[in-house]
Design a protein around this nucleic acid. Structure first.
Length: 597
RNA sequence: GCCCUCUUAGUUAAAUGGAUAUAACACGACGCUACGAACGUCGAAUCAGUGGUUCGAUUCCGCUAGAGGGUGCCA
């Protein structure tokens, strides 16, 4: 039981005994005592005044007095205005530490076959260009949330839906065909996804030139865009692709193959993997049958030109096209199909889409359509809508070359880690492979932490200069503290000190020790909260708080050189638990922690 | 036009219907003969404006201003 819950129950009893009324849970507000006051947890008296019919000070004092008289584990209290600050005894905290030290998988709920089944779709890249910073946020969020949900006792399936077909792919293809001179990753040494991306940019450049030319010969902007030969060729290519024209299909397979090789490297560098990858080329026709069904049910309507629509105006939304007048399907048609397919095949309790907030309307519409079709599971679809990543100069624009490339970014972070460790001389004497591994861990840790510490819902600014800072509220700061703890534990082992004994209240000698035990004991609640809110940032902030608190402790108090054996053991155990909790918090974020750095 | 979101120190972030709003970076001043200084200590600096609900609002609601996003054949 958490300390907060324990105090809530005790306070409830006290109120009942003192005032003869059983208070509502919402009236018993327990919160952490603010740093500047003495106490562990605080009961806010204001909501109880109606019950006590006394002023805040008197009410607080009466409850505080009752609690220390009736509970041996509550040591003392003080009252400031309407706040009752409670301190628990050293026995209580020693016992908490012993319980944590002897438990396995502390803070985690393990999944069983009876657990809820959750599918998380994330990443979902287009195969016409390499991954960039925006994809990194998506990937890191999706991966971390999957781990958080797993450790909240869910069976999680990670899936990727690759957008491997459509006009955007044809743009890269047509540009390569016309201007590529048979360039391949092997011939040019370019990473496959970058090579294809270059031709996407090339298409845009040539297309714009054609549009300008047509405009100067008298066409309007819209006319020029519609008539540009390159665009017509791309559209023709898409038609040929849909007709499975062998030449076009072969080119498409070849170029997508290059992209997949490139993506695989990026995913591997980021430490991201999936249980299953879906391809839009295999799912884009799904959903059409369901649209027919909807027409029969009268949920959708035909228009004169053959297009199919759903009217959502009664729900405050607009009318939405589902099938184009030429009979082809649109994005949402496919999503209707894939969602149905997944719930048919897997019996999911929840399906989470990790997709940027610019698609909020899309998912609102999707959910509504599915519920109109009578699918009860539509209420189990959840759009995890995350904010955009902007640069200090503003929005990233691929065409203006202001996009931060994922591979470049990872590379820069790792090389910064190299420079840093060289400068500090921290890794002297280690083998090249060890140094490379550590710098990789630290560089990636910096990047991942920088992105995940921000609340997913919020837009964030990515400042390249600040992101490679390894001091302060950063991944490397937390990793460093872990490495330092591991170093202490290695030395303790050499000295033959035992960190597996249990401790007694006499072992606790300074306040910081209790602060640390308290913080460690809050880990399960943080994991649970992060699972509920689908927010890795809660874990990141917790890890930082814990690390900061430990560093202060470490600075002010000796561990191995402490002469009192009981105190030394306690500090050793606290150190071990802090190190473990840091490691496990970071694991939930998809960040590794090194033994040395 | 209509709909949605956001606005917290110079900057980037945090928290909360409750106490004097929390950190980091940057800036200034300090601490290594030390279990790891990628650390620690001190200083200065913030809730866009306005009205309401409330014992109490930065948090909830309204309006104003600014920023971003979406909106019938893109994804």
């Amino acid at each position: 039981m958490s300390t907060e819950l324990f105090l809530q129950i005790e306070a409830k009893k006290a109120v009942e005994k003192l005032y003869g009324v059983i208070p509502d849970d919402s009236q018993i507000q327990i919160q952490k005592t603010r740093k500047e006051f003495e106490g562990d947890y605080t009961l806010v008296a204001f909501p109880l005044l109606k019950v006590s019919k006394k002023n805040p000070e008197v009410t607080s004092n009466e409850i505080g007095q009752f609690l220390i008289e009736n509970n041996k584990l509550i040591a003392k209290y003080n009252v400031i205005k309407g706040f009752l600050n409670l301190s628990l005894t050293n026995e209580y905290w020693a016992n908490v530490l012993n319980n944590i030290a002897s438990s396995t998988e502390f803070g985690y709920k393990l999944a069983s076959s009876a657990s809820r089944s959750v599918m998380v779709e994330f990443s979902s890249p287009n195969t016409n260009k390499p991954l960039h910073l925006g994809h990194i946020r998506n990937n890191l969020l999706g991966f971390s949330i999957s781990r958080i949900l797993e450790k909240n006792g869910n069976n999680v399936k990670r899936v990727n839906l690759v957008n491997d077909r459509g006009i955007h792919i044809c743009k890269s293809m047509i540009a390569w065909q016309k201007f590529g001179n048979e360039e391949t990753p092997a011939s040019s040494g370019k990473k496959g996804d970058h090579l294809v991306g270059d031709y996407y940019v090339c298409f845009d450049k040539e297309f714009k030139a054609q549009v300008e030319q047509l405009k100067s010969s008298g066409q309007t902007e819209d006319e020029a865009k519609a008539n540009a030969p390159l665009m017509l060729e791309a559209q023709e290519m898409l038609r040929k692709w849909e007709a499975k024209d062998p030449e076009v299909y072969g080119l498409w397979e070849k170029m997508n193959g290059w992209v997949y090789e490139g993506f695989a490297k990026t995913y591997s560098a980021l430490g991201i993997s999936f249980d299953k990858t879906y391809y839009e080329s295999q799912t884009y026709l799904l959903g059409k049958a369901i649209v027919q069904e909807g027409l029969k049910k009268g949920v959708f309507t035909h228009r004169a030109d053959g297009s199919v629509w759903v009217d959502l105006t009664a729900d405050g939304l607009d009318e939405k096209l589902l099938i184009r007048s030429d009979g082809t399907s649109v994005y949402i048609t496919q999503d209707i199909g894939t969602a149905t397919q997944r719930f048919d095949e897997h019996h999911l309790d929840e399906h989470i889409y990790v997709v940027g907030n610019e698609q909020e309307y899309h998912f609102k519409v999707l959910k509504l359509i599915l519920s109109k079709l009578g699918y009860k599971w539509s209420e189990h679809l959840f759009h995890l809508s995350y904010g955009m990543v902007e640069l200090p100069e503003g929005k990233m624009k691929s065409r203006e070359g202001t996009v931060v490339d994922a591979d470049d970014l990872v590379g820069e972070m790792v090389s910064t880690a190299h420079e840093m460790s060289k400068e500090l001389g921290k890794l002297d004497g280690l083998s090249g492979a060890e140094v490379a591994s550590i710098c990789n861990t630290v560089g990636l840790g910096a990047l991942k932490y920088f992105i995940l510490k921000v609340d997913p819902k919020k837009n964030m600014t990515f400042n390249p200069r600040e992101s490679i800072d390894f001091n302060g509220n950063t991944g490397p700061f937390i990793q460093y503290t872990h490495a330092r703890i591991r170093s202490v534990l290695r030395k303790a082992l050499e000295m033959g000190l035992d960190a597996s004994k249990s401790v007694s209240s006499q072992s606790i000698t300074v306040l910081k020790e209790i602060e640390l035990i308290k913080l460690i004991s809050e880990f399960p609640a943080v994991v649970e909260q992060a699972g509920k809110e689908l927010s890795p940032s809660l874990i990141a902030n917790y890890a930082y708080d814990l690390t900061k608190e430990y560093n202060q402790f470490y600075h002010d108090h000796q561990i191995l050189k402490e002469e009192n054996a009981d105190a030394r053991t306690l500090r050793l155990i606290i150190s071990k638990m802090v190190g473990d909790t840091i490691r496990r918090s970071m694991w939930l974020l998809g960040i590794d922690v090194p033994e040395k750095m």
